[in-house]
């Protein structure tokens, strides 16, 4: 589903039909990235649930669409020793249906169960959401909480990009022109407690603010703390320094400190959903709620 940016949109709001584009069906991943490298204004198409709305409103200048959907080898979920690998064409629906994902990555399930709506989840993919890099995407935020390995392929071969190095700005990633996400490897976080709190103005909308939490405690003392926010910054946001500064401290005694510190590094956007200061306030509140609930 589309988060529309008012000011861009007004120039174009007369359209709901995509502009004419050339359409390429690759036989292999290599052909796909090779094509992307050779042609300008070429975009890969996975589930299309972000790309197509943008094309319909003609927010993007696209001359070539490279349809990844025929590459069935990218549709899988596999459990490895200490991580779960999800193929780039695995639909949200399939991820949610996967019992091993539910068992091993409960936080991921919690978050993506609330992505868009059922129809959007039937088509949409995690990889597509990551490549789109909407700062209000919960999928991006939770991937950052895991600091997942984002596996990519380009003409020059495969590489792995850490989630923390992947998001470069609104709708901007570390992907090269001829590079696509082929899989995401989510580490299995053993011994963690998880929570996810999402505030939406209306069901199915992008969050005003959401927070995904993973925390590892030993006798109430924080061993690891991870907080991933959507909707508060130019990119999905993790306050790495704040997280680190609370390691070794009692969670119970630290909640208010964490709450006041997490907002220090952000300058949330103002839009129809709420002002920047309001978003900060909600950010504090959902952080408090999420952490209190984690303690039980």
């Amino acid at each position: 589903m589309l988060k529309v940016y008012l000011f861009i949109q007004y120039k174009y709001y007369k359209h709901v039909y995509p502009p004419d584009f050339a359409y390429y069906i690759p036989n292999s991943i290599y052909e796909a990235v090779d094509f992307l490298g050779r042609y300008d204004n070429a975009r890969p198409l996975a589930g299309g649930q972000s790309l197509l709305p943008m094309l319909k409103l003609r927010l993007l200048n696209v001359d070539y669409i490279v349809d990844l959907n025929p590459l069935k080898e990218l549709d899988y979920v596999s459990l490895n020793k200490d991580y779960m690998e999800i193929g780039a064409l695995t639909r949200y629906y399939e991820v949610l249906k996967s019992s091993i994902v539910n068992e091993k990555l409960p936080l991921l399930s919690m978050v993506i169960r609330k992505v868009g709506d059922m129809q959007v989840r039937n088509m949409g993919t995690i990889a597509g959401s990551l490549a789109n890099a909407d700062p209000a995407s919960d999928t991006c935020a939770v991937t950052l909480v895991f600091d997942a390995d984002i596996v990519t392929t380009s003409s020059s071969g495969n590489r792995v990009i850490k989630a923390r190095d992947f998001f470069k700005g609104p709708f901007t990633t570390a992907l090269a022109k001829d590079e696509i996400v082929t899989a995401i490897r989510y580490p299995i976080l053993e011994g963690y407690k998880f929570n996810f709190v999402k505030v939406v103005r209306r069901a199915g909308d992008y969050p005003l603010v959401s927070v995904a939490v993973a925390v590892k405690l030993k006798d109430g003392v924080i061993e690891d703390l991870r907080l991933g926010y959507a909707g508060v910054s130019q990119t999905p946001y993790r306050p790495f320094e704040v997280e680190k500064s609370f390691i070794g401290k009692s969670l119970k005694d630290s909640i208010e400190d964490i709450v006041s510190k997490v907002v220090e590094g952000v300058n949330p956007p103002s839009d129809t959903r709420g002002s920047s200061s309001y978003r900060k306030e909600v950010m504090r509140n959902v952080t408090r709620k999420a952490l209190r609930e984690v303690m039980g």
């Binding site: 198409l45 299309g48 197509l52 088509m123």
Partner: peptide, 19 residues
Amino acid sequence: CTVIMNGRSVKSCTVLAVQ
């Protein structure tokens, strides 16, 4: 615009015919 495609509901305004 919801229809069932290969057993799953999709919003047919957000799927290309070629897909």
